[in-house]
């Protein structure tokens, strides 16, 4: 099916692979051409929820069975991950907080699992989806959907502000907004602070908005590019059975490229998950820390 489509029209094949299974929330109909905000990418959200729930389920199960005896293999693995995340949080986050480490682990594990969907051969699940369930579009890698990555980073953004309010209060945060980084504490030029306040506010806004945007776009960009390359490689490999020698050679090359790219992705996948987690912790740490202190 992939080969046939690739032969017919590579462009269409690519486009097909980059189209979500969309549910128009206004008409409650599945419509691949739906636009606007009130559209739900069912495939992204379903895979994301399934993967996240799976991890959460295993975590809870390990938690139930956890005791002080010798840990089993899987329990050991989970504890290793937990310890790793906790170590990172301890290094970065300044206060004692019971939320940051589980939050970091949730991000790390969830992003990792979503990213790992990228190395599932790109036509397997869409093929099953089309022939077994009649779904004409299916994107199985949630982190190649910008909505998913922005969904995560916006939550982090909200948490950043919750942390800011919690640790600094409205007054502290307002002061930081208005007087950081430029402020003249005394002297004849104190009047100039009136001019500096808007500069500070604009700088702060840019700084704060850049955080979730960069988080989301970094993950999305890496995974989307990876997915796109996999699609292109699949087009190349799709030539394998068109009966010509050059086609077979291309197919073989595609097979090799696929292996190499998947191997490379084995590095990108955990790295992106790790980066997302670390930056989240760093952002939360900076939100919880008064800027006056670290100058």
């Amino acid at each position: 099916m992939a080969a046939a489509e690739a032969r017919e029209d590579s462009g269409q094949y690519v486009l097909h692979h980059l189209t979500n299974l969309k549910l128009d929330l206004r008409s409650m109909k599945i419509d691949p051409d739906a636009t606007g905000f009130w559209v739900l990418n069912i495939d992204s959200i379903a895979f994301a929820v399934i993967l996240g729930a799976l991890f959460l389920f295993f975590m809870i199960r390990v938690g139930r069975k956890a005791n002080t005896g010798v840990p089993s293999g899987f329990e050991n693995f989970i504890e290793m991950v937990v310890e790793f995340v906790q170590g990172q949080v301890k290094d970065i986050y300044p206060h004692a907080n019971s939320l940051v480490a589980p939050l970091g682990l949730t991000i790390f594990a969830w992003v990792l699992l979503m990213n790992f969907m990228d190395v599932v051969p790109i036509d397997w699940l869409p093929y099953i989806g089309e022939h077994a369930f009649g779904l004409h579009h299916l994107r199985i890698v949630p982190s190649t959907d910008i909505n998913i990555t922005f969904g995560l980073s916006l939550s982090v953004f909200v948490l950043m502000y919750i942390f800011s309010f919690k640790y600094k209060g409205v007054i502290g945060l307002g002061k930081e907004f208005l007087t950081h980084p430029f402020f003249i504490p005394s002297g004849p030029l104190v009047v100039l602070n009136v001019l500096l306040v808007p500069v500070n506010v604009i700088l702060r806004l840019v700084e704060d908005i850049a955080k979730p945007v960069s988080l989301a776009l970094r993950l999305f960009g890496n995974l989307f590019a990876g997915e796109l390359i996999f699609v292109l490689i699949a087009i190349m490999a799709g030539q394998a059975f068109n009966g010509t020698v050059s086609g077979a050679a291309l197919g073989f090359a595609g097979f090799l490229t696929q292996l190499v790219w998947a191997g490379f992705h084995m590095l990108v996948i955990p790295l992106q998950a790790f980066v997302f987690m670390i930056l989240t912790i760093v952002y939360l740490a900076s939100a919880a820390q008064s800027h006056g202190e670290d100058h």
């Binding site: 739900l40 990418n41 910008i146 998913i148 922005f150």
Partner: peptide
């Protein structure tokens, strides 16, 4: 484009 998936994901 950004859509309601974002809210659900958040």
């Amino acid at each position: 484009d950004l859509n309601a998936t974002l809210l659900v994901q958040s």
